[in-house]
């Protein structure tokens, strides 16, 4: 084999880079699976503890929904959302979502951190003041 040692060195470097994420995490405590909490005072007060759409829908689609909301509010001037149940809501992350889910750290950050996504909502939208 020509330049055998170069080839082998190349393979080692490639393997090093390819497996870097795994090697990097060795010996580190794993991030605990998220347990988002909905035990805010606002939600406790509700007779029926329900979000504007079903839980499973909100879990998988909230980001699409928020994306649609912002276009609807900012670009079309339509601010009221009618849920599948026919109820009306003001489309506002800051003034609707976060009024109930006032525990951003537990409710938003825990999952987002776990899956390592960093939505930039909070660069502009003001998060509710929390203790601690």
């Amino acid at each position: 084999m020509y330049d055998g040692w170069k080839v082998i060195l190349g393979i080692i470097i490639f393997l090093g880079i390819a497996t870097f994420p795994i090697l990097y995490d060795i010996g580190k405590a794993s991030v605990p699976p998220p347990e988002p909490k909905i035990d805010t005072p606002e939600i406790q007060k509700m007779a029926e503890k329900k979000c504007i759409e079903s839980k499973s829908f909100m879990k998988t689609e909230h980001m699409v929904m928020l994306d649609n909301w912002r276009d609807s509010v900012v670009r079309e001037g339509n601010r009221i959302y009618i849920s599948t149940e026919g109820k009306e809501y003001d489309m506002s992350l800051q003034n609707t979502c976060m009024k109930c889910h006032s525990n951003k750290k537990k409710f938003c950050d825990e999952c987002h951190n776990y899956v390592a996504v960093k939505p930039y909502c909070w660069d502009c939208h003001i998060e509710p003041k929390e203790e601690g």
Partner: peptide
Amino acid sequence: PGQFEASQVLRNPKA
């Protein structure tokens, strides 16, 4: 298009 195309939105009647 996603399922949101069909979702209902309204203008505030007071606007």
